[in-house]
Simulated assay, not measured.
Amino acid sequence: QVLGPRVAVATLGEKGSIAYDGERFYECGIVPAEKVVNTVGAGDSYIAGFTKGVIDGLDIPACMKAGAELSSRVIGSFEPY
C-alpha cells in the first residue's frame, strides 16, 4: 500500500513549475499572460487547473500545462480590490 501523495508539485513563479512522481521530475514553463492585472490566486488557480487535468485523466505534463494555462488567464483578469 502506498501512502502519501502520488505527485508533488511546486510552482516557481516566472520559472514555471516542477513535479515529481517518485520516479521522475517534470518541468513546465509558464504561459505568458497578455497583461498581468494581479498575481493573487496564481498558485491556487494553477493547482485547480492541474487537479482538473488529473480528474480528466491527463498525464502529468498535460496537467501542468492545464495549470499554467488557467493561472495565466486568472492573473490577466483577477481584480479582487
Rank of each mutant, 00 (worst) to 15 (best):
Q1M: 06
V2D: 12
L3V: 01
G4Y: 02
P5M: 01
R6C: 03
R6Q: 14
V9L: 11
V9M: 12
A10L: 15
T11A: 09
E14G: 13
E14F: 00
K15I: 00
G16L: 04
G16W: 01
G16K: 04
I18E: 12
I18G: 03
A19I: 14
D21P: 00
E23R: 11
R24H: 15
F25P: 00
Y26N: 01
G29C: 12
I30V: 15
A33M: 08
E34V: 05
E34T: 09
K35D: 06
K35W: 03
V36G: 06
V37P: 03
V37G: 05
N38P: 00
T39P: 00
T39Y: 01
G41T: 09
A42N: 04
A42T: 00
A42R: 02
G43I: 02
G43H: 08
D44A: 10
S45K: 02
S45T: 13
Y46F: 15
I47A: 10
A48F: 09
G49S: 10
V54P: 00
V54M: 14
D56Q: 14
D56E: 15
D56F: 08
D56V: 01
G57E: 14
L58Y: 06
D59M: 05
I60V: 14
I60E: 15
M64Q: 11
M64N: 08
A66E: 09
A66P: 00
G67A: 06
E69S: 12
E69H: 05
E69Y: 08
L70P: 07
S71Y: 11
S71H: 11
S72R: 10
R73L: 09
V74A: 14
I75M: 11
I75L: 13
G76W: 02
G76L: 04
S77K: 13
F78W: 07
F78M: 07
E79R: 06
P80K: 13
P80T: 12
Y81H: 07
Y81C: 01
